[in-house]
């Protein structure tokens, strides 16, 4: 069976354009965190960009970086995961419906609001007629995309696939999230290690990956296996152990576990259970760098891929005190409010 390698990564995040986890400085996460927009002019013609949603532009930028880095020109599939799609345009269109009482509406916001617009516009820009898919399954939307690519590279006659995760912040959606306590409010204490307040520090971003069956000089890591599910059939411990055993690994042979902790006191107990199982294992976190959103776990994959390739473990990722001796196997664990679970297993090449 063929393997699935990460050969290129591109990202737009709340950190400065070109940010690296090995940089000294990071922008501290606030209650709401907008992505730093790079310059799109070199990449997207004004005639095209004038109608593009922020999520589309961020994705095109990140996708382009990932493809360029992997020297991939003709992906045989474009697969995108997004929690809410280009929600800013959904809001715009809905606002217009309400304010103008269903009159004088224009198509642009509606078109940009459809979930598949990101994958579609990447295909249009690349003139890529290949397989094109969009997953919208909340917090494991990105892992759905990763799984699809993984299965196709392993089993089908495909060599190169572009995948990504993207989400936007939009003002009214944010205020609705505030009403139900899903997000942090201004002034809320944001503590990832010992969360005291409910809600997540909402952010946005796009993270894209060029995946291939071929290992290159630029390969970051191999995606060895992943599991995407809505709920545990068994308890957490035995599910994780079984997943590792299936891959000839155990709790002790995981060098770093990357946790999707999101500073939400309500969601912390789940991660605590995982921590207890991996007490001796170096535990890493990343949402204090990316902020939290449905597809933030794609940023987590980027971080994991970068540390496995560089074999270095920046201080700022440390969730506990443990220091890895080597970084060969990484397990990523993510969920949202006890659903949309995902485990992703990465190995050094």
């Amino acid at each position: 069976m063929k393997n699935c390698y990460i050969n290129g990564i591109g990202s737009v995040s709340i950190q400065a354009t070109g940010f690296s986890i090995f940089d000294a400085e990071i922008t501290t996460v606030q209650n709401v965190n907008k992505a730093q927009q790079p310059s799109y002019k070199e990449l997207i013609a004004p005639a095209m960009s004038r109608r593009m949603a922020k999520g589309v532009k961020m994705s095109i930028y990140a996708a382009n970086k990932a493809l360029f880095e992997a020297k991939m020109v003709d992906p045989q599939a474009i697969i995108v995961g997004t929690g809410l799609g280009c929600i800013e345009d959904s809001e715009k269109f809905l606002d217009a419906i309400i304010e103008n009482e269903e009159q004088f509406l224009t198509p642009t916001a509606f078109i940009q609001s459809t979930h598949n617009t990101v994958a579609a516009q990447i295909a249009l820009l690349l003139q890529c007629k290949a397989y094109n898919f969009t997953y919208v399954n909340g917090a494991n939307s990105f892992e759905n995309a990763l799984f699809d690519a993984f299965m196709q590279l392993k089993h089908l006659d495909k060599e190169n696939i572009l995948i990504g995760g993207v989400d936007e912040i939009a003002p009214y959606t944010f205020s609705m999230f505030e009403m139900v306590g899903k997000v942090k409010r201004v002034g809320d204490n944001i503590n990832f290690k010992k969360p005291e307040t409910n809600g997540i520090p909402l952010a946005e971003g796009a993270n894209f990956f060029a995946l291939s069956v071929k290992k290159t000089a630029n390969t970051y890591a191999e995606v060895v296996d992943l599991l995407v599910f809505n709920d545990f059939k068994d308890d957490e411990t035995s599910t994780i152990k079984a997943f590792l055993e299936k891959n000839n690994l155990s709790v002790n042979t995981i060098d770093v576990i990357v946790l999707g902790v999101n500073a939400d006191a309500v969601q912390q107990p789940f991660y605590h259970k995982i921590q207890v199982l991996f007490t001796e294992t170096p535990q890493a976190y990343y949402q204090h760098i990316s902020g939290s959103y449905d597809t933030a776990s794609a940023f987590g994959l980027k971080v994991a891929a970068e540390i496995i390739r560089s074999q270095s473990y920046p201080e700022k990722l440390k969730y506990n005190e443990a220091q890895p001796e080597k970084i060969e196997n990484i397990l990523l664990v993510n969920q949202n409010n006890l659903t949309d679970f995902s485990f992703v297993l990465l190995s050094k090449c």
């Binding site: 994958a119 759905n144 059939k233």
Partner: peptide
């Protein structure tokens, strides 16, 4: 309980 996915194309 298992693989749950949502597609929007």
């Amino acid at each position: 309980k298992g693989f749950v996915s949502t597609i929007s194309t």
